[in-house]
Amino acid sequence: MANSAILCVDDESVVLRSLRDQISKYFGDQHTCEIAESVEEAWEVIDELKEDDVEILLIISDWLMPGTKGDEFLIELHQKFPEIVTVLLSGQADQSAVERIHQNMQLHAYISKPWNEEDLMGVIQAGLSTFQE
């Protein structure tokens, strides 16, 4: 297991599989790609990774999910772990949610669904480069 991870959070399993496959293809030799189907599950994965001393470098989260919305999750995440790079990936995020995230944290990027694989990998690479400086 790599000692660093990228976490993807989305309530649609087909989206998670796509993200995991694409991220693993580009970054699999360097970083583990973990997935969570809810914010609650994401916190469990974060706790497990922290217990295993795996550094979470980047989190990609959907916005519209049952229970906690992606913007609320990313803002809370930033309060607890400000070093983690965050990306909001959504086809339905409203402008006020995106503004709220920008006001309350450093959102690395907002990407609309459906995404372009090369664009997403470029955003991830740029986010990861902050750890190589």
Rank of each mutant, 00 (worst) to 15 (best):
D10I: 01
G127W: 00
Q79W: 02
K69G: 05
L89Q: 00
I59L: 06
V9H: 01
S96R: 14
V9I: 10
D11C: 14
T32C: 12
V14Y: 14
Q125H: 13
V123W: 01
P114C: 12
I124A: 02
Q106V: 13
F73M: 04
D29V: 08
E133W: 12
L7N: 15
F131N: 01
A42F: 05
C33I: 09
D10N: 05
Q125C: 06
E133G: 11
N104H: 09
Y110Q: 07
V87F: 08
A126T: 12
K50I: 15
L120Q: 03
V98E: 04
S4M: 09
W115D: 04
G91T: 06
M1K: 11
V45G: 00
R17L: 11
L19P: 04
L57V: 12
H78N: 08
I23K: 02
V87S: 00
S96E: 15
V14M: 13
D11I: 06
A2R: 09
R17S: 14
V87W: 01
A126N: 10
E48N: 13
D94Q: 12
Q103N: 15
Y110C: 08
S61G: 05
T32D: 14
W63K: 08
I56T: 10
L89C: 06
I56V: 12
N104F: 05
G28Q: 03
D52S: 08
R100C: 11
L58H: 00
S96L: 15
V15N: 00
L128Q: 03
F131L: 02
S18E: 10
Q95R: 13
L128P: 08
R17E: 15
Y26L: 09
L64N: 13
G91R: 02
E37M: 03
T130N: 08
L89P: 00
E76C: 06
I59N: 03
L57G: 10
H102D: 15
E118P: 10
H78L: 03
E12Y: 09
Q30S: 14
E34N: 08
Q125G: 12
G122R: 02
Q22V: 14
V85H: 04
D53S: 11
F131I: 04
G67K: 09
E37D: 11
Q22P: 10
H78D: 08
S61Y: 02
M1N: 14
V87T: 05
V45R: 04
G70M: 01
D21P: 06
D71M: 07
D52Y: 08
F73Q: 00
E118M: 07
